[in-house]
Simulated assay, not measured.
Amino acid sequence: MELAPRELAVLALERRSFPGPGAKERAIREELNLSPVRYYQLLNALLDDERALRHDPVTVNRLRRVRDDRRHER
């Protein structure tokens, strides 16, 4: 099974850089019509999805490292 269009859009947004504070949250709301909380829930689920890893291994592995680092800091 392939990733859904919304899942692909979440990964695509994560590949982008944003110019300043609030820009990413604004893009999440305007482009994906999601609240930031829901977006991050979807993103975290994607990081554990092997389909996402196959689709974009660089982004998924980078985000997994960031997530793991944050967990170890707690």
Rank of each mutant, 00 (worst) to 15 (best):
E25F: 02
R70K: 09
A4F: 00
H72G: 10
R15D: 05
E2Y: 00
D48N: 08
L43W: 09
S17P: 05
A9I: 00
A45D: 13
R38A: 13
R67S: 12
L13W: 04
A45H: 12
H72L: 15
D56M: 08
L34V: 02
F18K: 02
L13R: 03
P21A: 11
E50F: 04
D69W: 13
L13K: 04
E50P: 10
A23Y: 11
P21R: 13
L13H: 04
M1I: 05
L8I: 04
Y39F: 15
R29I: 03
R64N: 08
R64H: 08
A12N: 09
R38Y: 13
V10I: 15
Y40F: 15
R62Q: 13
M1Y: 09
E7F: 02
D68K: 07
V60A: 12
E31K: 10
R67M: 09
G20I: 04
R71L: 15
V58S: 07
R70A: 10
L34F: 02
E50I: 07
N33D: 10
R67T: 09
R51F: 00
R54V: 07
D68G: 09
A23E: 15
Q41E: 13
A12L: 08
E50H: 12
R67D: 08
D48K: 05
R29H: 06
Q41K: 11
P19D: 10
R70D: 08
V60M: 11
E25Y: 03
E73D: 14
L3H: 01
L13T: 03
S35F: 12
R74C: 10
A45R: 15
P19V: 03
A27G: 13
M1G: 14
E14I: 01
T59M: 11
R15G: 06
E25S: 10
L46T: 00
K24H: 12
V66H: 06
R62K: 14
L47I: 00
R74P: 05
E7N: 04
L34W: 06
L32Q: 05
N33F: 04
R65T: 14
A23F: 09
A27W: 13
A4W: 00
L8N: 07
L3G: 01
L13P: 02
H55V: 05
I28C: 11
L34P: 01
P21E: 11
L63N: 09
P21K: 10
V58H: 06
N61G: 07
I28Y: 11
D48T: 07
D56I: 05
E30S: 09
R6P: 00
L46D: 00
R62E: 14
D49R: 00
V37K: 15
L11Q: 00
A23L: 08
N44V: 01
H72C: 11
Y39R: 07
G20W: 09
R6V: 01
